[in-house]
């Protein structure tokens, strides 16, 4: 556990020194077509997006515009019709643990405890570690999401918010190169959502895993992201606009809300969505 913390400490220390960041995720001319009885339905077309290492990008757009399709294509759970997706220059081949996913529904195995749920991924990614080491990794992340008292609780006995915390721990514990979040807090009430945003950003500040997150919530998009990507409405959705968020990290909700630029960003996003 201490090794883990030391490691993440080094990353946060050295991060500002790297000037030119590596290209982590590259979507080129991405296209998705669903065949329907009435002919082809083009969901995405000519979608280009570059995401740098250690960047947090949120994607916002109207319902049904193809955000989730895009994310599941990056995850490898949805076939690519045209164009390419590469991680660190290598085209992806199907799903894999280098791209961790936090689903909208917590998607925990309800018959497993929260520890077993996290271990399911950890065992898979660190097959050569000892059992104790793997346990430590899983427990470390469960502690980070505030579940140190619920290691051995069945997932089905946890509240929705607690389950999504396990989901976050499970995704970070497998140390993915890219973290994909598909509206992870969409099903939660606003209080719980705020709590989980804080937890997410706290872990992320330590781990700096490149993250792509879909959201419907303008404030959430601004609070979490380095860049907010706005998608046009489908069919043939593509990137409509990109907004750089220049708030310093680590951020707190208070400093963000009180920042002079906050309402300018917010207006920008809402104007785009209402357009």
């Amino acid at each position: 556990m201490s090794i883990l913390e030391a490691e993440t400490h080094i990353i946060t220390q050295t991060a500002p020194e790297i000037e030119t960041k590596e290209l982590m995720l590259d979507l080129k001319n991405l296209k998705k077509v669903y065949p329907t009885p009435k002919g082809e339905y083009v969901v995405l077309e000519d979608l280009n997006l570059q995401i740098m290492k250690e960047e947090f990008v949120t994607i916002i757009g109207h319902s049904g515009c193809g955000k989730t399709t895009m994310l599941s294509m990056i995850a490898g759970l949805n076939e690519i019709t045209g164009g390419s997706i590469s991680v660190l220059g290598k085209p992806i081949k199907g799903p894999g643990p280098d791209r961790g996913v936090i689903f909208q529904a917590p998607s925990l195995m309800p018959w497993m405890t929260s520890l077993q749920n996290v271990l399911l991924g950890v065992n898979q990614v660190f097959p050569h570690a000892t059992k104790a080491q793997r346990n430590d990794i899983a427990k470390y992340y469960l502690q980070k999401v505030g579940l140190e008292d619920a290691f051995h609780k069945k997932a089905s006995d946890l509240s929705q918010g607690m389950q999504q915390r396990v989901g976050i721990a499970r995704a970070f514990a497998i140390k993915p190169k890219v973290l994909l979040l598909d509206e992870p807090f969409g099903m939660l009430d606003s209080l719980t959502r705020g709590e989980l945003q804080d937890i997410l950003i706290e872990i992320w500040n330590k781990e700096k895993i490149t993250a792509v997150m879909i959201t419907h919530d303008v404030d959430e998009a601004i609070f979490l992201a380095d860049r907010v990507v706005m998608m046009t409405s489908g069919p043939k959705a593509k990137i409509g606009d990109v907004l750089e968020i220049d708030f310093e990290r680590p951020r707190t909700r208070k400093t963000v809300l009180e920042h002079d630029d906050y309402y300018r960003y917010r207006k920008h996003l809402i104007d785009f969505l209402e357009h």
Binding site: A75, L77, P95, G96, F103, S107, L120
Partner: peptide
């Protein structure tokens, strides 16, 4: 969802 988890984790 469970199957997707299995796919992502490459079980």
């Amino acid at each position: 969802d469970y199957i997707n988890v299995a796919k992502v984790l490459k079980l």
